[in-house]
Amino acid sequence: MRIVVSLLLLFVLVYGHVLTTRQAVSERKILAIDLQTPTALPGPLLRLSALEFKGVLADFLFLKALVFIGASDERTTVPAVTPAEWQWLLTILNSTVDLDPMFIDPYYFANAVLVWDGHLVREANALLDKGRVARSWDWQLPFYMGFNSFYFLEDDTAAVNYMIEASGRPDAPPSISSLVVRLAYKGARTDSAILFLQQMLAQTEDDKRQKDFQLRLEALLGIRKIEHAVVAYHDKFNRFPVTVEDLLHAGVIKSLPVDPFGGNFYIDAQQRVRTTSDLRNIQKEKTQDDPLK
């Protein structure tokens, strides 16, 4: 009899424990994290207070950033990450690399997330610059900076300089040298972007990012196809087409490529081929489903 009572009591207690654990953790989620006050100290002070545990502290700060982004994937709010939170993430990643400037993961992560999702390109490049100096043997960091300068900041001169630096470092893939040559020719931006993206794709292990790059690559290949048609149109009629449909009617293109981001290709006043999606996912805001999948 006593055993039965004890077992019953134990069962009730274990049930209570599981219940309170779950409830307490879910209650915790309701608490708003005050992200306006960045939790990270300035670099030199942080290094000083980390004593001999700088490396491990860097690892834990990085994990914090990683967990935050992982959790934000499950959010249903639009945007999933607020601007204040992006700033917080930037601060955390900066602290991480201040503690251990040779740690590659925060750079890799910042380049993927801050640039593509947070649109903090200049800030990310400033962060990557710390790694470019500290990891003097690593070609990837100047390569990322070059890509960001070219693709987002449209600063070709800076991009060429970074790419020259990247190509001179050990184990740099030879395709970077051809990128440098191509970048030096102003104008062929689409071709350069395609080459750049192919290189980024080869370096990326993250599935989500790979799909994103593939989509952009597809869109850029579409733009290039139309660009070639525009040139052919100009050769044929000695004037520029006004709309992309002109290309179809003139027969210089058999079919119009589809923008994988859901936009429509058009020709702007400077005869540049663009798309209404601006290579951003325009469907994402309309539907709950991720169109990438």
Binding site: A58, M102, D105, Y108, F109
Partner: peptide, 24 residues
């Protein structure tokens, strides 16, 4: 456990944690 969450510099993190544990 921690190293399973790291994307690239797994070796660095593993050594960090091991050596810091000894120090601590």
């Amino acid at each position: 456990l921690i190293c399973s969450m790291i994307m690239r510099d797994v070796g660095k993190v593993a050594v960090d944690i091991a050596l810091s544990s000894i120090s601590l």
